[in-house]
Amino acid sequence: MSKLIAVSPSGFSVGLYCYNQSGGPTWDVPKGRKDGRVSKATETRQLPAPTFNISQLQQSFAQRGLSIDDLVALSGGHTLGFAHCSSFQNRIHNFSSKQSVDPTLESSFAASLKSVCPATNTAKNAGANLDATPTTFDNRYYKLLLQGKSIFSSDQSLVTSAKTKALVSKFASSQQEFQKAFVKSMIKMSSISGGQEVRLDCRVVN
Score class of each variant (00 low, 15 high):
residue 1 M to E: 07
residue 5 I to H: 11
residue 5 I to F: 14
residue 7 V to C: 11
residue 7 V to P: 03
residue 7 V to R: 11
residue 9 P to H: 00
residue 12 F to C: 15
residue 12 F to R: 11
residue 14 V to L: 14
residue 19 Y to L: 09
residue 20 N to F: 06
residue 21 Q to P: 00
residue 25 P to Q: 06
residue 25 P to W: 09
residue 27 W to V: 10
residue 28 D to A: 13
residue 35 D to K: 05
residue 38 V to Q: 13
residue 39 S to Q: 12
residue 41 A to M: 10
residue 42 T to Y: 04
residue 48 P to F: 10
residue 49 A to V: 02
residue 49 A to F: 03
residue 50 P to M: 02
residue 57 L to P: 00
residue 60 S to N: 12
residue 61 F to Y: 15
residue 62 A to E: 03
residue 63 Q to W: 00
residue 65 G to M: 01
residue 67 S to N: 10
residue 74 L to W: 05
residue 74 L to S: 07
residue 76 G to M: 11
residue 81 G to S: 03
residue 82 F to V: 10
residue 85 C to E: 04
residue 98 K to Q: 14
residue 99 Q to Y: 02
residue 100 S to Y: 02
residue 102 D to W: 06
residue 104 T to S: 14
residue 107 S to L: 08
residue 108 S to Q: 14
residue 109 F to T: 04
residue 112 S to Q: 13
residue 115 S to Y: 08
residue 115 S to L: 12
residue 116 V to W: 05
residue 116 V to M: 05
residue 118 P to Q: 04
residue 118 P to I: 08
residue 119 A to P: 00
residue 123 A to M: 10
residue 125 N to Y: 12
residue 125 N to D: 14
residue 127 G to I: 01
residue 129 N to S: 08
residue 130 L to C: 08
residue 135 T to P: 03
residue 136 T to M: 02
residue 136 T to Y: 02
residue 139 N to Y: 06
residue 141 Y to L: 00
residue 147 Q to H: 07
residue 149 K to L: 07
residue 151 I to D: 08
residue 155 D to S: 15
residue 156 Q to I: 01
residue 158 L to Q: 03
residue 160 T to H: 07
residue 165 K to E: 09
residue 165 K to I: 05
residue 167 L to H: 04
residue 169 S to N: 11
residue 171 F to T: 01
residue 172 A to S: 15
residue 173 S to W: 12
residue 175 Q to L: 12
residue 180 K to L: 01
residue 181 A to W: 06
residue 182 F to N: 06
residue 185 S to F: 10
residue 186 M to R: 06
residue 188 K to L: 10
residue 193 S to M: 03
residue 196 Q to A: 05
residue 196 Q to K: 03
residue 197 E to A: 09
residue 201 D to T: 10
residue 206 N to C: 08
